[in-house]
Design a protein around this nucleic acid. Structure first.
Length: 234
DNA sequence: GCGACAG
DNA sequence: ATCTTGTCGC
């Protein structure tokens, strides 16, 4: 079975970069080892003036996208947002949320990069190493790499290249809508990552698992803030 | 030194 | 990410 990684999340930016270089070689973009029957989507929202973070994990039936369960975790924000070091800010809480699900997902869709990262360890890959299960990185914008223009129709896709290697695919999930930057996270191939991203993106740009997690996180931050005596005029 | 830069 | 109503276009 896949080995999992454990380390402290509270380290300096310099140590974070060193750790990423150390962990990247452990990521495996190999074919899915088992059929995907359940898929989870994870996303975060910030509140309390950016001092707290809530991560949500939504479990769905892979075929019907019916929601089976939802779990969340709240934490104090300990790291600022630094391009390239996003996982040190959001992954700890996301890991906790996914761990709270009643059952382990066969695949996890993460909002952010996977292999399409300067040091090949975007948040999807990093979270995958911690969970020890397949993950896909689905970013709404580009972190690194270059690519040609993407066809305007749903399903059109072009390679995202950096340093001579294919890091991911720029995929159009809806006609004439800004494409998504998809890359393998861990324990999955790029082709499979693209297939599952397109397959779960029905009538919206984002895959349903991530979209559901995003929406629920937005509702939760407001509810949690109100419950903890913060200002919420009207 | 000058840009670029997931969420 | 977050602050936020209406509005241009198909």
């Amino acid at each position: 079975m896949a080995e999992t990684i454990r380390h402290s999340w509270q380290i300096s930016p310099q140590q974070s970069v060193r750790l990423q270089r150390e962990l990247a070689p452990h990521v495996r973009c190999t074919p899915l080892a088992r059929p995907v029957r359940t898929i989870a989507g994870v996303d975060c929202a910030f509140f309390d003036s950016g001092r707290q973070i809530v991560a949500v994990a939504v479990l769905m039936q892979a075929k019907t996208l019916e929601i089976m369960a939802m779990a969340y975790a709240v934490d104090q924000v300990r790291m600022p947002y630094v391009p390239g070091l996003l996982s040190f800010r959001e992954a700890p809480t996301q890991f906790e949320a996914v761990s709270q699900l009643p059952q382990s997902p066969d695949l996890v869709l993460v909002d952010g990069a996977g292999q399409a990262h300067p040091r090949r360890l975007g948040i999807a890959s990093h979270l995958g190493l911690w969970l020890g299960i397949p993950t896909v990185g689905v970013a709404k914008s580009r972190l690194c790499g270059r690519h040609r223009a993407v066809g305007r129709r749903r399903g059109c896709c072009v390679k995202l290249i950096d340093g001579g290697e294919v890091l991911g695919g720029v995929l159009r999930t809806r006609d004439d809508v800004k494409p998504l930057y998809v890359s393998a996270g861990h324990l999955i191939t790029l082709a499979e990552a693209l297939k599952w991203t397109l397959r779960t993106a029905r009538q919206y740009r984002l895959p349903e698992p991530i979209r559901a997690a995003d929406r629920i996180a937005g509702q939760l931050k407001t509810r949690i803030a109100e419950h903890s005596g913060q200002f919420s005029p009207m």
